[in-house]
Design a protein around this nucleic acid. Structure first.
Lengths: 233, 233
DNA sequence: AAATGTATTATGTCAGACATAATAAAATTA
DNA sequence: TAATTTTATTATGTCTGACATAATACATTT
């Protein structure tokens, strides 16, 4: 059998030229400790240096660009950028492209994030934030007719929370999640919207954020999102 | 002033040819309701149909491939795939590429997720899951010397939780976050590791998952992660 | 010195060619 | 005839060379 000599056979590299160049470039970016904004060598230089055609270089650079590692400008060449982790996948975050399973999981993800972020909020919230939240809440319709699910107020309020969390990555994540959440909410993926039960209002959450603690906020947020959770389980 | 005629000037199309082709292709994928595995037209066909060179088509296709929308095979052409939202950015999730701010935020993100996932766990956990968790916990070192922070046990336990959550997207997300978390944990980005205080152990969490409720679990998990939180604030 | 025009440069796009791997078709063999 | 091998086909991968275009630097003019 082949198994005898199998050991001696090195794993053949199935990677294409572009793959190698890409790895090479990533390594370059890591090693050289280049600062953000620093230019990387021109396409032709890279091509001659690495001994491949410009086509291959371009494709590899394109990948880096998609990964958010570089940004190419005409004439100026490509410069290093701080990778925007989620910015780049937001394009593929299209409700019409993702399958229902994934869409539902995105929906869940938002709920998980907002319940779990309590500690970040309490450790970073400022007086001005509370005031702005109160201002936002003041403009909301009364709870009795809140089942209209005013999307704008939802975004204003919950978006502000993400902001308070001080976690920009999470905020970007939310921004990406928003259209998905909205789509799932209005599509037939989830169970029917249940009759509205009483729940902690936005105002209630602000109160907790002002006078309560993280544990109370988690419970409050969980309750606030009850109508969403009901549609999951 | 120009402002008079400014209104009449349409926003010039700053997008490149590739941009347009990309948009065109994405639209194609959405409209035609193509099933997963269906092939899309060959590069040359697209080139002639859309009236651009094969180079442009290739670059646009490459973008779709990076977004995880298609997968190209030799001879067979490109086929539609279910986009793996996070799988594609895992490459750029390199600790050495991301800036410290983002790294820290990723660290936080994990904490947020694990506290917020309680409801998913309680609604989806099965008897077998509890048993497996118990098995995992049984193999762990005693709490007294737990400060060794055995990474393997950490991954085994917490990874299982993500699995129980039934949210594959979140699990992928965790998988992507893992190396980041480990890196941040061991780097100088965070505050010094505090002296270990008592906290809810893995075993304690399993107990809660078996007999408690979501609220208790959140509090327990928050406490379990206390040593991580201490390094943040 | 400010505004304008010109030259340069690096990316964007094009076209055509060959290499390569995966598949389909044909030929061979048992 | 069925199974295997050989050959042909096909679509992507890579290469080369060229021109277009936009951003910048330089020179010119006012």
């Amino acid at each position: 059998m082949l198994s005898v000599i199998k050991e001696g056979i090195p794993a053949i590299d199935n990677s294409s030229l572009v793959d190698k160049v890409e790895a090479s470039l990533v390594q370059l970016l890591q090693q050289q400790k280049l600062k953000i904004g620093d230019p990387i060598p021109k396409e032709m230089e890279l091509a001659t240096t690495l001994g491949v055609s410009r086509t291959v270089i371009r494709e590899a650079l394109l990948r880096l660009r998609m990964m958010g590692l570089i940004e190419s400008k005409k004439k100026k060449g490509a410069v290093i950028t701080s990778p925007d982790v989620f910015g780049n996948i937001s394009k593929s975050m299209n409700p019409y492209i993702l399958d229902q399973e994934t869409l539902k999981e995105m929906f869940e993800l938002r709920l998980v994030l907002e319940i779990g972020m309590a500690d970040l909020l309490f450790n970073r919230v400022k007086k001005e934030d509370i005031e702005e939240l109160k201002r936002i809440v003041a403009n909301e319709p009364p709870v009795t007719q809140y089942h209209l699910f005013n999307i704008e107020h939802e975004i204003a309020f919950h978006g502000k929370l993400y902001e308070i969390s001080g976690n920009k990555t999470m905020k970007k994540f939310q921004k990406m999640l928003l259209p998905i959440f909205d789509y799932v909410h209005n599509s037939g993926i989830l169970k029917e919207q249940p009759f509205i039960t009483t729940f902690v209002s936005h105002k209630g959450l602000v109160d907790i954020l002002e006078k309560g603690d993280a544990d109370k906020f988690r419970a409050g947020m969980r309750n606030h999102l009850e109508n969403h959770f009901k549609r999951l389980f």
